[in-house]
Write a protein that binds this DNA or RNA. Structure first.
Length: 296
DNA sequence: AAGTCCGCCAACCGCATTGTT
DNA sequence: TAACAATGCGGTTGGCGGACT
């Protein structure tokens, strides 16, 4: 019996499906449920894992009294119920990291997820398919094509870096303003009011903290990584190629690898892409104008 | 208001790999 | 070391909800 045969044999033994979202565990003659998990099932699984730990998913499912396959329990726990699962929108930093790591490793979702604490491979895969592949589709090019990879690398990723930096700067400004106000308040409350004197940012640079180091857990964790992608983008934008990136991070004329014949289509497609992307916080009007200049 | 479309994402499936007996 | 079981991984599907007509 070769590998495939015995795997299929395992699967046949494990479950036999009917047409009604029910499966039968032949060994235990038990109806198995599939589809969405109920709150009761979630509690049952969580309580059982809290008491007995995870692993041995098939026997866990049986001993917990869950009419689910071990696989289903494992997936539910790892992708949803685990306490350290990070929920909510993918941040700019995470987007950048996903793009970078995917450019290195391709569809190695699990490997990529290891570098995004709290994110699951499923979540990253979904992000890629729904957001990134959508843009490839809009550009009418293959997601693996050089054209699309260049678009990601020379447009999307630098733009994300700029957004991250801008966000970090604005956070610093808010923190600085708060610090200044607190200082002033403190001085006033101590009856040490100094007429006509205001505190500048320079005066208080020593008491401010950067958003990246104190507020942004991803940034902190990334900085601990052995292969530090995010920091590389922060510091070495020249990595994109000196001929491509201007000091502001913008792309030099002619950097895009579009053939002349494709320019009109690409311009139209990219403009539409950028318009659509406003909802994803990746592009703005400035980007659109810039790109149109590049394509003209 | 009702019907349709579409994007998102949880969950499933098949296969590969790893662990255990 | 072969057989089997458990786990991991990536592709795909289907249901839900919001947007649109």
């Amino acid at each position: 019996m070769d590998h495939h045969q015995h795997v299929n044999f395992n699967l046949r033994r494990e479950i036999i499906s009917d047409n009604n979202n029910h499966k039968v565990d032949e060994d235990n003659n038990m109806d198995l449920k599939s589809g969405s998990w109920t709150v009761e099932e979630d509690f049952t699984l969580m309580n059982h894992i809290a008491l007995h730990g995870e692993g041995r998913w098939n026997s866990l499912a049986r001993s917990a009294g869950l009419k689910r396959t071990g696989k289903s329990c494992r997936l539910r726990w790892l992708n949803y119920l685990r306490p350290d699962v990070r929920r909510g929108n993918i941040t700019l930093e995470e987007q950048l990291l996903i793009l970078e790591l995917h450019s290195r490793w391709g569809n190695r979702w699990s490997k990529i997820a290891q570098h995004l604490p709290g994110r699951t491979d499923n979540e990253i895969k979904n992000y890629w398919r729904t957001r990134v592949q959508k843009h490839a589709k809009q550009l009418k090019c293959d997601v693996n094509s050089k054209q699309f990879k260049d678009t990601l690398r020379y447009l999307w990723m630098p733009r994300l870096v700029e957004r991250i930096q801008a966000s970090s700067n604005s956070n610093n400004e808010v923190i600085n303003q708060q610090s200044i106000q607190q200082k002033n308040d403190k001085i006033i409350s101590n009856n040490n009011i100094i007429p006509n004197m205001s505190f500048t940012q320079e005066n208080y640079s020593s008491i401010t903290t950067t958003a990246a180091s104190s507020e942004n857990s991803i940034g902190t964790q990334i900085s601990d990584m052995s292969d530090n992608c995010y920091t590389n983008y922060h510091i070495n934008q020249g990595d994109y190629g000196e001929s491509l990136i201007s000091p502001t991070g913008y792309i030099q004329h002619g950097a895009l690898d579009f053939s002349t014949a494709d320019i009109d289509d690409n311009q139209q497609n990219m403009s539409q892409l950028l318009l659509d992307d406003v909802s994803d916080n990746l592009w703005n009007i400035e980007d659109m104008l810039f790109l149109q200049q590049q394509l003209n």
